[in-house]
């Protein structure tokens, strides 16, 4: 039996979220898969056009409904279930969007979900992390049931662009609930690279000591063209906003360079960065667990080392 994979697109109404291209890549590793992308939106034309360019996608479905202006799981799930009828697999990225939506879809379908897919081993065999990444489990899902998956995006490259899939409008008749209403979203607008997809990330921990001093991390990141991340301790202490948290319960990332400043490296943090190509750690405690995973380690007071690093980078 051939596999048909439906990838639910994460987007903001106008742009495709970077995680979607990685979920498409993951979907294309399912043996014999035909990959379609589903865009649920009020007006999904721009997002669909972007999805159609992703390599490996053979068709993009656009479900335009006024109720899809803001992406809410309770409203989207019945539509996904309806459209998923002809598919063997339904994939979504492990973004906050996918984590919210996909289990609701799975429950409506009466099937289990493979969370945080790391690799596809067969049409119904998958690997995923448990215990904050301390163990990797291989799971088999029943061959006669639909497979619902969220994709650990750090485990997959983004699908290349240059494709030209057909775009097709689909309509759904599912009754949608009115019990869930969007009020607003508060984002720290910034021109910095997006943490989830940035090639370089500079991340700060509790040792920064205050919100004011955390600006040292922002300054270094800006100089390097990097995104900013933070440890849970730094976010809990209010030094950095929640959307910058990296780790088991925050964002899982795989940049080319991860520069950890004043981060001790709790296991929950390390699980969020272990796919980084190069990890650099600056910490004054030589026993800090971050040094066990660091490719380049500098034992130093960050308040001395970071300004020195900035000066050195400026000098070229």
């Amino acid at each position: 039996m051939s596999s048909k994979v439906l990838v639910v697109a994460d987007h903001d109404g106008s742009k495709l979220n970077a995680g979607t291209a990685r979920a498409v890549k993951a979907a294309s590793t399912v043996p014999g898969a035909e990959v379609h992308v589903l865009v649920l939106a009020a007006d999904g034309a721009a997002v669909a056009a972007a999805a159609a360019e992703l390599a490996g996608v053979s068709k993009v479905l656009v479900a335009n409904r006024a109720e899809n202006t803001h992406l809410m799981a309770a409203v989207l799930a019945p539509q996904v279930v309806e459209i998923a009828a002809g598919y063997t697999h339904v994939f979504g990225p492990s973004s906050s969007f996918g984590k919210d939506l996909m289990p609701r879809v799975a429950a409506l379908l009466g099937v289990g979900q493979v969370s945080d897919l790391m690799s596809v081993e067969g049409t119904h065999t998958f690997k995923r992390p448990i215990y904050a990444g301390n163990a990797i489990i291989t799971v088999e899902s029943p061959a006669d049931q639909k497979v619902v998956v969220t994709v650990r995006t750090a485990s997959f490259e983004a699908a290349a662009t240059g494709g030209s899939a057909a775009i097709e409008a689909v309509s759904t008749s599912a009754a949608l609930p009115s019990h869930t209403r969007f009020v607003g979203v508060q984002s720290a607008k910034s021109d910095r690279p997006d943490l989830q997809s940035a090639a370089k990330v500079v991340s700060g921990g509790r040792a920064l000591g205050s919100k004011e001093q955390f600006s040292l991390v922002f300054g270094l990141a800006d100089q390097m063209g990097a995104a900013v991340g933070a440890s849970r301790a730094a976010v809990d202490a209010g030094y950095a906003p929640n959307e910058l948290q990296v780790g088991q319960t925050g964002k899982i990332i795989a940049p080319e360079l991860y520069l950890a400043v004043g981060i001790s490296g709790a296991i929950q943090h390390l699980t969020g960065i272990k796919d980084a190509k190069t990890i650099v750690a600056i910490n004054k405690d030589p026993e800090a667990p971050i040094f066990e995973v660091a490719d380049i380690a500098l034992v130093a007071d960050l308040f001395v080392a970071v300004p020195e690093l900035q000066a050195a980078l400026k000098a070229g």
Partner: peptide
């Protein structure tokens, strides 16, 4: 619904280098 067939330890990262100061760090980068 999902049958666990195998558990494995995660891949470990190879040991990195220790640099003694910022100048060495910049060189390594």
């Amino acid at each position: 619904r999902l049958k666990a067939t195998h558990y494995a330890a995660p891949a470990t990262r190879s040991k990195g280098i220790v640099v003694k100061d910022v100048a060495e760090l910049v060189d390594a980068l």
